[in-house]
């Protein structure tokens, strides 16, 4: 099976006053239709940047330096602006971080949804557009009358469902959801995730779920990709990631999870995430890595495949191999 999504060598920089910050560094990733991938990593590690790059929505001072993002055989990076505009929402949809708070407060939900369709399928009849919106609302378990409502009349969970409904309006092949439930309670969170799950199963869509909630990842995704300082450090199945993470950063992340039996124990990872302007030489994690070796300070570890389907970038596993 050819993956529905193939990212190759994707690189993004932000040109700030202080210099060039490499926010995404030669990222490669494959995703099959119907697969769910969790993208995790420290705040500022480049997760949203990766999503924006895939959507070609990086704005100045940011720039996609190189790479390709192939969805269903079409490289989005090489499309012209007009073609890309049409691809958004129909090939690949993005539910941005904080989306539910960026719904327009003075416009009815329905009008915002219709606008989204119009931008892509300008010649659909008003009645068809309305019907399509209503169906999308229903498919995320919202009542049709939400179409007439304003954002402030909806709870957080409902607003988030509206955003998902907008995301699936044109049945894309890939959906990227950036922290879709980070401000929702556990019950609503579960409902929203189950909604995404059902919708993606029905449409066979591949989903990238960006987030920090490892619990949610454990419950929802098939694979987990861990990002650190703009690079993917490990991609493993959710079971492997939680039971035997290989990359030391992934190990620390799994260890820092709170549970109900270790009250008062906070096990954060010591040290600060590196500045993207001054990414350490060699492995970017080496200043904080408890297992760092000499080679880590000088040589960037390549991403290698282990046990058939795990991808890890760490010298621990290549030394002496």
């Amino acid at each position: 099976m050819t993956p529905i999504l193939q990212i190759r060598d994707l690189q993004v920089s932000y040109y700030t006053d202080l210099g060039r910050a490499t926010a995404l560094n030669r990222v490669n990733l494959d995703l099959n239709a119907g697969e769910k991938l969790g993208l995790v990593g420290e705040s500022g590690s480049g997760k949203s940047t990766m999503a924006l790059a895939m959507m070609r929505m990086i704005k100045a001072p940011g720039r996609i330096e190189s790479g390709s993002v192939t969805v269903g055989g079409v490289d989005l990076i090489s499309l012209n602006d007009e073609e890309m505009r049409l691809a958004r929402l129909s090939r690949i949809a993005y539910i941005p971080q904080g989306a539910m708070n960026s719904l327009n407060p003075v416009m009815r939900i329905g009008a915002q949804m219709v606008d989204a369709i119009k931008a892509h399928v300008p010649n659909m009849s008003q009645a068809d557009m309305t019907e399509q919106c209503m169906q999308a609302l229903e498919s995320v378990d919202l009542k049709r009358n939400v179409f007439q409502m304003y954002a402030h009349e909806l709870s957080g969970g409902m607003k988030q469902r509206v955003c998902i409904a907008i995301g699936i309006l044109l049945k894309p092949q890939v959906i990227i959801a950036d922290e879709p439930t980070s401000a929702l309670d556990v019950v609503t969170q579960r409902q929203v995730m189950e909604t995404i799950d059902r919708v993606q199963k029905e449409m066979g869509t591949a989903v990238i779920l960006i987030g920090h909630d490892m619990g949610l990842m454990a419950q929802f995704v098939d694979k987990v990709a861990v990002m650190y300082a703009g690079r993917l450090t490990e991609v493993s199945t959710v079971r492997d990631m939680f039971s035997k993470p290989m990359h030391p950063y992934a190990q620390a992340l799994i260890k820092s999870l709170p549970n109900l039996s270790n009250k008062g124990v906070f096990q954060g990872i010591a040290g600060l995430a590196p500045s993207l302007l001054r990414i350490p030489n060699g492995c970017a994690f080496h200043p904080r890595c408890p297992q760092a070796m000499d080679v880590c300070k000088t040589t960037i570890p390549d991403v290698k495949e282990y046990e058939g389907n795990r991808l890890v970038a760490c010298h621990l596993y290549t030394e002496g191999a």
Binding site: E42, S256, I269
Partner: peptide, 15 residues
Amino acid sequence: EPVSMVDASLRANIL
């Protein structure tokens, strides 16, 4: 919800 958007490790530090 002061730490909803940071990772588990940082969450621990901020709390």
